[in-house]
Nucleic acid binder design. Structure first.
Lengths: 154, 154
DNA sequence: GCTGAAATAATAGCGTT
DNA sequence: AACGCTATTATTTCAGC
C-alpha cells in the first residue's frame, strides 16, 4: 500500500477497539457493514503499521490493592544530558512508577505512582529521593477519579 | 466460590494480560503449566469478578496525530458539592480530557489532555476557562515520554 | 477446582473480482 | 482493496475425577 492514511473505516475500527478490544472481527463487520475478511485485513494492517501498539487488560486498581495514586513532580539540580539520562534510566526501574514524562514549566518530570497505601508510597519516596541530582519532589494524591480513559478522541 | 482472593496463578494471569491481552488461553496454559480449561475458568472468573475491567487497544498517539499531551491543574473558587459536581459533570464531556482526578494539595483537579497541537490545546483551554467557578488553570506540556504503562505492579 | 475431549466459533490464508 | 470460501486454531461447554 502506497498511501497509509486512515480512511473512515480504519478510524471507526480504532475508535471501537480503543473502547473494547475483545470485539471479534465478526462483530466489527456487523457494526461497519463490511465483510469479515475486509475487517480482518484492516485490523491486521493497523497492527502491522503500528497504529495499534498493543492489546492490554485494564484492571480495577481498587480490587488489586492499588488504592493510592500519586502524581510526583520532580525537579533536578541541572539539565545536562547525563543528569537527565541517569534520572530516566533509574526512575523507570521502580515498579511503582507507571508513567514518567519530561515536562515544560516549573518542574522537570511528572511521575504517576501506584501504591497500596501511604506507607508504601513513603517507602517509594525514600528510594526516589536518594537518586542523584534531585532538587525536590512534590507529591499530590488522588482523592477521586472523575474520568480515567486510555482512548484518544478520533 | 466463597473466597475470592487471588492465588499465584491468578496474579500471574493478571500480570501477563496487563502486558498483552492478545495472549490466547493456550499460550497462557503453556506459560503457567496449567490446562487450557483451567486457564479459561480463571480468566472467566477474573472478568466476572471485575478484576479485569476491560480489554482495550493502545494506540500510537503520534501516528494518530495526538502529538501534544498536557497536564492541566485546575483550581476552583470554592469546594461546595455543587461547584465540584458541576465541574466534574462538565469536564468529562470534553473529548480532549482523557483523565480527570480530584487531588490533594495546592490545586483541585489534574487533567490529562490530548490534542493535535498547541493550537488545538488553546481552543480547548478557552472552552475550559469558560466553565463556572474556575479560579485558575495551569498547563504543563509533555516534552518526552520516559515510561508509559497501563500495567500495575503485582 | 482441575482435566481431557467434543462441539462451536473465530481467525488466517488464498483465489477471484 | 473487498469479498467469499476453506483450512486452521481458539474458545466454550461438559462429563468425570
Amino acid at each position: 500500500m502506497l498511501n497509509s492514511a486512515l480512511d473512515p473505516t480504519d478510524l471507526e475500527i480504532l475508535r471501537l477497539l480503543q473502547r473494547d478490544a475483545s470485539l471479534t472481527n465478526k462483530e466489527l463487520s456487523y457494526k461497519l457493514h463490511k465483510s469479515i475478511a475486509t475487517i480482518h485485513e484492516r485490523v491486521r494492517r493497523l497492527k502491522e503499521q503500528g497504529y495499534i501498539q498493543r492489546i492490554v487488560a485494564i484492571l480495577d486498581r481498587k480490587k488489586i490493592d492499588k488504592t493510592l495514586i500519586a502524581f510526583s513532580q520532580v525537579l533536578l539540580n541541572d539539565h545536562t544530558a547525563t543528569t537527565l539520562n541517569t534520572f530516566e534510566k533509574e526512575v523507570v526501574k521502580f515498579p511503582e512508577v507507571m508513567e514518567c514524562f519530561q515536562m515544560t514549566g516549573t518542574f522537570d518530570f511528572i511521575l504517576r505512582i501506584a501504591t497500596r497505601d501511604m506507607e508504601e508510597y513513603h517507602l517509594f519516596y525514600r528510594k526516589l529521593a536518594t537518586l542523584p541530582k534531585i532538587t525536590s519532589v512534590q507529591s499530590f494524591f488522588v482523592l477521586s477519579e472523575t474520568k480515567s480513559d486510555t482512548a484518544y478522541p478520533l
